[in-house]
């Protein structure tokens, strides 16, 4: 537990998009000490500010070396960047009459190393993991409904013609980066498994509060779930729910077996690293069978009408 005197003001939730990070933010925002704005995109913007490209001779071309030539050390630059970004969140917390803030933006999971550069250990981090294939299913639904892919997924979509495969690779990359980060910051980062939170919310929230150095007030979950004001950029779907639904777990089991087999090869190592059972899918298909499956599918569609 963080001691009161050195407890950072900021709490940052990191996790692949569709991992339950909004639910967690909603819960924390119901705490009387913690302000929870909508997604600010400020941390990923900070990470991009520090990004650079290597030149042919190995020099990193970007703001760190650009300002470095003016005598600005990286440490000073990242401190000023942190103060600039955290300042907005500190001000927001003050306006809300709270002492701390929690920041969560879905795509931050793809900017973890940049965020780490300027946040360091000056915040507490909740590192959320969820079963990769449930994330993949939810990402597909999210992109279909929004009619677009966030820019962080563009490279994956360009590389893989099947969206589910692209999302699986994105989950693997984001999750491994997240777990690496959590291992580098054992005192300031707490791994949070979405399924554990869903299975026993009261107990899990008590653990979270202990890590954050806070006390969970009575009725915190009820307060959180009765607040339907999504505030700013947010996952409106989460805020439309007034209870924690277990139906969001194991949705991947409805995927076709051929798809599961392909995805298993991509996600299994990372699933195991997160503590989930790897998928064991045995599926063989010939061209003839594939054609018959397609014809059977067409016939089944006609039964629906």
């Amino acid at each position: 537990m963080a001691a009161e005197q050195d407890k950072p003001q900021g709490i940052i939730i990191l996790g692949a998009p569709r991992s339950g990070t909004t639910l967690l933010r909603r819960i924390l925002g119901a705490h009387p000490n913690i302000a929870a704005p909508g997604e600010t995109y400020a941390l990923s913007a900070g990470a991009r500010f520090l990004s650079s490209d290597p030149s042919i001779d190995g020099m990193q071309v970007g703001v760190v070396n650009g300002l470095g030539f003016l005598g600005v050390e990286e440490e000073e630059l990242t401190l000023r960047l942190r103060n600039f970004i955290f300042g907005f969140l500190n001000d927001y917390a003050a306006r809300e009459g709270k002492t701390r803030w929690v920041e969560k933006t879905a795509i931050d999971a793809f900017h973890i190393e940049g965020i780490e550069r300027f946040c360091g250990d000056d915040a507490q981090f909740l590192c959320v993991t969820r079963h990769g294939l449930d994330v993949v299913c939810s990402m597909e639904e999210w992109c279909q409904k929004s009619g677009s892919y966030p820019r962080e997924l563009h490279a994956y979509i360009r590389q893989h013609s099947q969206p589910l495969v692209a999302f699986a690779h994105a989950w693997v990359d984001a999750t491994n980066t997240l777990l690496d980060f959590a291992e580098r910051h054992p005192d300031n980062a707490m791994p949070v498994r979405y399924e554990d939170l869903i299975a026993s919310p009261e107990d899990y929230v008590a653990k979270l509060m202990s890590f954050l150095g806070e006390t969970a007030p009575e009725g915190l979950l009820e307060t959180a779930l009765s607040d339907t004001d999504a505030r700013g950029f947010s996952d409106w779907k989460t805020f439309s729910k007034s209870s924690i639904e277990k139906s969001s777990v194991n949705r991947w089991r409805r995927l076709p077996r051929a798809t599961l087999q392909e995805l298993a090869q991509i996600v299994n190592n990372t699933l195991e690293r997160c503590g989930y059972d790897p998928l064991s899918i045995k599926f063989e298909d010939s061209d003839e069978n594939a054609r018959r499956r397609y014809e059977t599918g067409l016939k089944l569609q006609s039964l629906k009408s």
Binding site: R254, R257, R293, T296, K299, L300, Q301, L303
Partner: peptide, 28 residues
């Protein structure tokens, strides 16, 4: 059971019973 898994079920029946379910037989 959704369409994908209904197909799997039909293929499972075919494999287990060593038979082919013909399209006209695919009915509710």
């Amino acid at each position: 059971i959704d369409s994908f898994n209904m197909i799997n079920l039909i293929m499972f029946i075919e494999e287990t019973c060593q038979t082919k379910v013909k399209p006209p037989e695919i009915t509710l």
